[in-house]
């Protein structure tokens, strides 16, 4: 397939991550990293449970929900019985499988992925309201987080021609 290029290309993406499961966080990371890879500016705003992705003692322990996730499948593709999801260790096992699967595809762990985004000029911010709610301070967050800012501050960065806001 030939990709038709837009004459007036995208210049900046502002990505908002409000959820903290592995797949939600990775959706944000892939979109932001994909942008800087293409020479598109990227600013990322983590809020609510999304803050887990940039909280020092949680960012390495993200999980995939095994309950209330109708898209879950057993290895091999059979449906995943919801009741299985409540058993101790199942969520951890499933999350480990997800991480292994991603490593096989050369998708890095969260911290390394964030570093890649920053290496490409991307910027990482935390939401002030959510940080207050979860009683998180700057020192609790990953060192490369630029600042804890308000929604208004974030929107102020999202101006400019050919800018898109992406909510994952």
């Amino acid at each position: 397939m030939t990709i038709k290029k837009e004459e007036n290309p995208l210049k900046k993406v502002c990505v908002i991550c409000a959820k903290g499961s592995i797949e939600d966080v990775y959706a944000t990371l892939v979109m932001a990293n994909g942008a800087v890879m293409e020479g598109i500016e990227a600013k990322v705003f983590f809020t609510f449970f999304g803050l887990d992705a940039i909280t020092k003692n949680r960012m390495k322990k993200l999980k995939t929900a095994t309950l209330g996730n109708p898209a879950m499948r057993m290895p091999g593709g059979l449906p995943f019985p919801s009741l299985l999801g409540v058993l101790p260790g199942v969520e951890a096992g499933v999350s480990l499988m997800m991480k292994k699967g991603m490593e096989k595809l050369d998708i890095p762990p969260v911290e390394e992925f964030l570093e890649m985004i920053i290496a490409g000029g991307g910027e990482i911010y935390a939401c002030k309201m959510a940080a207050e709610m979860f009683k998180l301070e700057k020192k609790d967050l990953w060192d490369e987080v630029i600042d804890i800012i308000t929604v208004g501050d974030f929107y102020a960065m999202c101006g400019g021609e050919n800018t898109q806001i992406i909510f994952t």
């Binding site: 890879m37 293409e38 020479g39 890095p108 290496a119 490409g120």
Partner: peptide, 27 residues
Amino acid sequence: LSIRKVGNSGIVNIKELYQLFPGGPLK
């Protein structure tokens, strides 16, 4: 090929790769 593989090559790190080929390093 991926940016990560080049970053792990021992030749350059990812930041240096962006500096060598600004605005879309892998492409």
